[in-house]
């Protein structure tokens, strides 16, 4: 009952947040220099005033700002994200076409970094002060400090060009015509480099977070109680220490999960991954504002949704958290 009440409250708040984001984005984008009509006309090779005015009228760009905003809001509320200036297809279609690729990439990176980060963090804490601990923590520091694009480029250089183990770009082999499992394997093969590249930074974060949190929990009284009960060391680590140490990791994981849609622009660009990030990047370059606003909207909605889910899950992970909090 309390959970339902909580959910309703939060959903109402979330709707307002998303609405605010939409309005803010719409207004901010007007501040950006450059005129979509001029860009389109330029690309079409016809730059005369009349053609530009015609384009403006066609897209409603000649209306006052508040009229444009109102009609945009009206469209969004009725589920219409608008029409791409450039591609001449509905924005919703464009996004839906690209979304699976991005979710596959960011989802894999999420799982990869979470699992590897926690395992390494637990190992480092368990073997505190040993050579293994030093190696893990040094590695974590290196990947924490190294820029993502550089890791990506080096990975392509080493694993694709020199060793020829992994394909350097795109999501599947073009023209190979794989189907079923063969296609899945092909995609997985292409997925390795971008996933690892995107996930390494968060792996480093999770490793450091898990280790620090484990060491802190190991000093708490109830761990001593567990030892006094005669619980074996392995079980103490699993049941008592890790279970409590995972809470801050969970908090950070919900931050990463919020970036599931919008966080892979750089990786998608480097690896030519056909996802939302690249769609956004191209739309920005071409002043294709409806597409850009659509991507922003979806990104904001995902962030809000993930936050809501994380707060709900928190109440299962930690029974002490009450709805009111």
């Amino acid at each position: 009952m309390k959970t339902l009440e909580f959910l309703i409250q939060r959903l109402a708040k979330a709707a307002f947040v998303v609405l605010g984001v939409v309005i803010l984005n719409f207004l901010l984008i007007q501040l950006a220099p450059g005129d979509p009509a001029a860009v389109l006309a330029g690309e079409a090779g016809a730059g005369d005033e009349q053609f530009i005015a015609q384009l403006r009228a066609q897209f409603g760009l000649d209306q006052p700002l508040y009229v444009q905003l109102l009609s945009y809001l009206q469209n969004i509320l009725s589920g219409d994200l608008g029409y791409s200036y450039r591609n001449q297809v509905p924005v919703a279609d464009l996004i839906m076409e690209r979304l699976p690729a991005t979710l596959l990439l960011t989802g894999s990176a999420f799982v990869f970094s979470l699992v590897l980060g926690i395992v390494l963090g637990v190992l480092a804490a368990y073997k505190r002060g040993s050579l293994g601990d030093s190696l893990i923590m040094t590695g974590a520091l290196v990947f924490y400090a190294t820029p993502l694009f550089w890791v990506a480029l080096m990975a392509v250089l080493v694993f694709s060009i020199h060793l020829d183990w992994l394909p350097p770009f795109d999501m599947e082999s073009i023209g190979a015509g794989y189907t079923g499992w063969a296609r899945a394997a092909d995609i997985a093969h292409h997925l390795v480099l971008p996933t690892v590249t995107l996930g390494l930074f968060f792996t480093a974060v999770y490793t450091r977070l898990t280790r620090a949190s484990m060491l802190e929990v190991m000093n708490l009284d109830f761990v001593k109680t567990a030892r006094a009960k005669g619980v074996p060391k392995g079980r103490i680590i699993r049941r008592h220490v890790l279970r409590n140490a995972i809470l801050p990791v969970f908090t950070f994981a919900s931050v990463q999960a919020g970036q599931l849609v919008g966080g892979a622009v750089l990786t998608e660009t480097v690896f030519a991954w056909p996802g939302i990030g690249r769609l956004m990047f191209d739309a920005l370059m071409q002043r294709d504002y409806p597409v850009l606003l659509g991507v922003f909207l979806v990104t904001a909605a995902v962030v809000v949704l993930v936050n809501l889910v994380a707060d709900l899950l928190y109440r299962f992970v930690d029974p002490r958290i009450e709805t009111a909090g």
Partner: peptide, 19 residues
């Protein structure tokens, strides 16, 4: 431990696993 000799502590607030 726990079988032949067991122990109770000062701080009942922190001596139990909260989860």
């Amino acid at each position: 431990r726990g079988r032949t000799v067991s122990m109770i502590f000062q701080e009942p607030l922190s001596a139990l696993n909260p989860l």
